[in-house]
C-alpha cells in the first residue's frame, strides 16, 4: 500500500511530467479569477452590465435585484475528467457573488439577461424618475407667454469640437 507521502510524490512527478510536456512561453496579464470582470455602462434610460462567465450555463447563474442594486451569483463546477493521469489546473472553480450598487433607482421587474459565448449581458431599465432628460434652453420670455424653445444656431458645441479636432472626425 502506498503511503500518503509516496502518493504525493508520485502525483508531483506526474505534474512535473506535464510541466515538461507543456512549457509556457511568453508573458501576458493572467486571467484566472472566478469572480467575473464587469463592464457597466449607461444611456439615458438603461444600465447595461456585462460579466465574463466562461463555461457557465444559464442554470449556474442567479441574478437578484433591489431598487438600486444588482447581485450576480454563480457556481462553476469542475467535472474531474475520467481517466486523467495527471492534471495542472489554473482555471478557477467554485462559487462567486458580486453586487453592483447603481446609485440610481432601477426597475427590478424590467431587467433582462442573456448569456452568449461566456459573456452575460444584463439590461437594467432605470425608473422614469432616474432617467436623464434633455432640458431645452429657452429664450427670455415676455411675461404671460408660454415657454418656447429658443432658436439656437445650427452649430452645436459638439460640432464645434469636431471642427477643432480633425483626428477624431477621421474615425
Amino acid at each position: 500500500m502506498l503511503s500518503t507521502m509516496s502518493m504525493l510524490r508520485s502525483f508531483d512527478e506526474l505534474s512535473r511530467r506535464l510541466d515538461r510536456a507543456f512549457e509556457s512561453v511568453g508573458q501576458g496579464v493572467a486571467r484566472t479569477q472566478l469572480t467575473p470582470a464587469l463592464n457597466i455602462w449607461q444611456d439615458a434610460e438603461t444600465l447595461t452590465v456585462e460579466a465574463e462567465l466562461p463555461g457557465f450555463r444559464r442554470e449556474d447563474i442567479e441574478i437578484l435585484a433591489t431598487h438600486d442594486t444588482l447581485t450576480i451569483r454563480g457556481e462553476r463546477v469542475r467535472h474531474d475528467p475520467q481517466g486523467a493521469e495527471a492534471v495542472r489546473y489554473e482555471r478557477s472553480f467554485g462559487r462567486f457573488e458580486r453586487t453592483v450598487s447603481f446609485g440610481v433607482p432601477i426597475d427590478p421587474d424590467g431587467i433582462s439577461a442573456s448569456l452568449r459565448d461566456g459573456v452575460l449581458r444584463i439590461t437594467v431599465p432605470k425608473t422614469p424618475e432616474a432617467r436623464a432628460r434633455r432640458i431645452e434652453v429657452t429664450g427670455e420670455l415676455p411675461a404671460g407667454t408660454n415657454p418656447r424653445p429658443a432658436e439656437l444656431p445650427e452649430t452645436s458645441p459638439e460640432r464645434a469640437g469636431e471642427a477643432s479636432n480633425p483626428e477624431s472626425s477621421r474615425a
Partner: peptide
Amino acid sequence: VTYRPGTDFIEFS
C-alpha cells in the same frame, strides 16, 4: 493589454 487565459492541462493515456 494581452491577456494570458487561465489554462488547465490534463494528461490521459
